[in-house]
């Protein structure tokens, strides 16, 4: 199995997966706590639209997904802040429009079924050297920003009103986090597909939040769990010939299950001792 790593696409895929799985959970933690899940749903469908657009126009898929997702975030921001529309309603409308656009493009432009499936399940080994470099730069930027704005982000996560009253420009931070989420979803789609990208973004943060007691430990544990999911998903994919997106999602589900059970054991033990 190790000799597969001598193939540049496989090695490149592994490199991208490891980088992504260690850093994307940071954005996942923001998505969960700031309740950006409606945005995440919209962006997931935006990734499908961007992918379909890329295939129909023969553009690099990652680039078109990035553009579409950034536009969607800006549009949602415009609708909610300028148009005073409810956030859930705005993201829902944009999500449905994206999905409709994606299916219309895929069928109208005669995109092959295989290529459409790749959008859903991801195609890690098709990541180009340029895309891998872009992913590395993005992941580095994500880590640097999370370090630089750590306090302001923590304030926002703790309570938006407290953040505002303590002098944090909460609207600017919130907007930046949305843009980062849009980019994370775009890169994660390339690695794990639009339907399974949660395995890289949300699952590690969810699993870590079960046992973490501080923001710092949450970030550390999320990254570590993300790495474990990434490595085990990659090995499983090579061993079973499954798509990496699918194997990563499966290992993610197992890791999340184990975290929940492990967090319950001490509680159950202390309850038993009390009795």
């Amino acid at each position: 199995m190790l000799n597969l790593l001598s193939y540049p696409p496989v090695l490149r895929g592994l490199f991208v997966l490891l980088t992504a799985s260690a850093t994307f959970p940071i954005a996942g933690a923001w998505v969960i706590r700031l309740n950006l899940l409606p945005y995440r749903f919209m962006l997931m469908h935006g990734a499908l639209l961007g992918g379909a657009l890329g295939l129909a126009l023969n553009l690099p898929p990652l680039l078109s997904v990035i553009v579409v997702n950034l536009l969607l975030v800006l549009l949602a921001d415009l609708l909610t802040n300028q148009g005073h529309m409810d956030g859930g309603m705005a993201t829902m409308a944009l999500m449905i429009a994206s999905l409709g656009g994606a299916s219309a493009l895929a069928s109208g432009a005669g995109v092959s079924a295989q290529e459409t499936t790749n959008l859903l399940w991801g195609d890690l080994f098709a990541v180009s050297p340029t895309e891998a470099t872009m992913a590395l730069i993005f992941c580095l930027g994500l880590v640097l920003y999370s370090q630089k704005a750590d306090l302001q982000i923590s304030a926002l996560i703790f309570d938006q009103d407290v953040a505002y009253t303590s002098g944090v420009n909460s609207q600017r931070i919130h907007r930046t986090l949305l843009l980062i989420t849009a980019l994370t979803v775009a890169f994660a789609m390339r690695v794990a597909g639009a339907l399974l990208l949660d395995a890289l973004m949300l699952v590690p943060a969810l699993a870590a939040s079960v046992s973490a007691h501080s923001m710092k430990s949450l970030y550390r544990k999320s990254s570590l769990i993300g790495l474990i999911i990434g490595v085990s998903g990659f090995i499983l994919a090579l061993a079973t010939n499954l798509p990496v997106g699918a194997s990563t999602a499966l290992t993610g589900a197992v890791v999340l299950g184990i975290s929940i059970i492990m967090a319950r054991i001490p509680r159950a033990r202390s309850h038993h001792e009390e009795l």
Binding site: R33, F158, D159, S166, S209, H213, K216
Partner: peptide
């Protein structure tokens, strides 16, 4: 107080007070 189940330490909460400066 602010109450949600997301992990944050008491030290981090107090440090948030300085986030705007």
């Amino acid at each position: 107080g602010i109450l949600h189940r997301f992990p944050i330490s008491a030290l981090e909460v107090v440090t948030i007070g300085t986030a705007g400066r």
